[in-house]
Amino acid sequence: MIGTVTFDELAELMNARAGLSVDPQEMKSRPDATFADFELDSLGLLGIVAELEKRYGQPMGADAEGCKTPRAFLDTVNGTLAAAV
C-alpha cells in the first residue's frame, strides 16, 4: 500500500535533492508560504518530483511540478498517489 508524503519527507527531499536545510516543523506551521520562501527553486522542485516518481513508481505529472507551496504540493502528490491505488 502506498503511504502519504509528509512535511518531514518533503523537508528530507529538499535537503537531498536541492541541498536545502528546511525544518519540517516550520513548513507545517507555514504550509502556504511559497517554496521561494524556503529557497526552493523550480529545478529543485523538479528533482523532488523525479525522486518521488522513482520512489513510488507513479508519475506525478505537471501539476506537482507547478505547485508553489508545500501544502499545494503535498495535496497534489498525495492525491495522485491515492488515485493510483
Rank of each mutant, 00 (worst) to 15 (best):
A18Y: 12
D63T: 04
A11C: 11
S29E: 15
P59N: 07
A84S: 15
P59V: 12
A83G: 10
T80N: 05
A11E: 04
P70L: 04
P31L: 09
G19D: 11
Q25G: 08
E9Q: 14
F73K: 00
M14W: 14
D37H: 13
E53Q: 12
L10R: 12
E65A: 14
M1W: 08
L81R: 05
T34F: 06
D8N: 11
M27H: 05
D32F: 07
K28Q: 15
M27R: 06
T34K: 14
Y56K: 03
D37K: 05
D23Y: 15
E26H: 12
L81T: 04
S42I: 07
Y56N: 09
D37I: 12
T4N: 06
L74A: 01
N15P: 01
A82Y: 07
K54Q: 13
A62Y: 01
Y56L: 03
R30A: 14
Q25R: 13
L10A: 04
P70D: 07
A82T: 11
V49L: 02
Y56E: 05
N78F: 10
V85I: 08
F7M: 09
M27Q: 06
G57F: 09
T69H: 00
G66W: 04
V49W: 03
F38D: 03
N78L: 04
D75N: 07
D63M: 03
G61L: 07
V85P: 00
G66E: 06
A16E: 15
F35C: 03
L52Y: 05
T6N: 08
A62H: 04
P59M: 09
D8H: 07
L10F: 03
L46H: 01
T6L: 06
E39C: 07
E39I: 04
L13H: 12
Q58C: 15
D23T: 05
L74E: 00
R30M: 12
I2G: 03
P70T: 06
Q58P: 01
G66N: 11
R55N: 02
A62T: 09
F7K: 04
S29N: 15
L45D: 01
V22S: 02
D63Q: 11
A11L: 13
T76P: 00
F7N: 09
P70N: 08
